[in-house]
Simulated scan of single mutants.
Amino acid sequence: MILPFVIIIVFVVVMIFARRNAATRDCRWREDRTGDKGSLRKYNCIACGAEAYRSEGPPDRCLKGLDAPRL
């Protein structure tokens, strides 16, 4: 009688932990010092091809859809 509720609770907890890092799961950020701009370090994602400039380390999420606007 209590077993179905335990199974549901375990399933929900597993799903919460599985989605916790979904935003950056596929990204692999690598520092590219040849493209630095002053104190900003350039980072390239080898999985999706995104580029980012940051001063405090690699991004913590995927930036694939955030391209520069086209004029």
Rank of each mutant, 00 (worst) to 15 (best):
D36V: 08
C48Y: 12
G35M: 11
W29N: 02
R70V: 12
M1Q: 14
L63S: 02
K37F: 06
T34C: 01
A47W: 11
G49Q: 13
T34Y: 04
R28I: 14
Y43T: 01
P4S: 09
F17Y: 15
P69T: 06
R25M: 07
A68P: 01
R54A: 06
A47T: 15
I16F: 13
L3W: 04
L40G: 00
D32Y: 05
A18E: 09
D60L: 12
L71M: 10
P58M: 05
S55P: 00
A50F: 04
A23I: 06
D67G: 10
V14S: 13
N21C: 08
F17T: 06
F5T: 05
L40I: 01
P59E: 05
D32F: 00
W29A: 01
L63M: 13
M1V: 13
D60C: 07
D36M: 10
C48M: 09
A47K: 13
I46Q: 08
K64V: 10
T34D: 07
P69R: 15
G49H: 08
G49D: 09
F11S: 13
R61T: 01
P58L: 02
R70L: 09
R70D: 10
R25C: 00
L63W: 04
I7V: 15
D36I: 03
S55V: 05
L63H: 12
R41W: 03
G49R: 10
A50L: 04
D36H: 11
E56V: 04
K37H: 10
T34L: 06
G49T: 04
Y53C: 01
R19V: 03
C62R: 03
L66K: 12
N44W: 10
C27Y: 00
G38C: 08
E51Y: 13
P58S: 13
I16S: 01
D26K: 14
R19T: 00
P58K: 12
D60K: 12
R33E: 11
A52S: 08
V14P: 00
R33Y: 02
D32Q: 11
Y53T: 00
R61C: 03
F17I: 12
V13N: 08
R30M: 13
R61G: 11
V6E: 01
E31R: 14
F17N: 14
C45N: 07
G57P: 01
G49F: 05
L3S: 10
P69S: 10
A22P: 02
V10R: 04
N44E: 09
L3R: 11
V6S: 10
L66H: 08
N21S: 13
V14G: 07
A47M: 09
R19E: 07
D32A: 09
A22R: 14
T24R: 08
A52G: 03
L71W: 06
I46P: 00
F17W: 09
R33K: 12
A68K: 08
E56Y: 07
L71R: 09
I46W: 02
R20P: 02
E51V: 13
I9M: 13
P69D: 09
C27W: 03
C48G: 12
S39N: 11
G35C: 03
V10S: 14
L3C: 05
I2P: 09
L63F: 09
V10A: 15
G65Y: 09
C45K: 03
G38V: 04
I8W: 07
E31I: 00
D32K: 05
C27F: 02
Y53N: 03
P59H: 07
E31P: 00
I8E: 05
I2L: 15
T24D: 14
M15S: 14
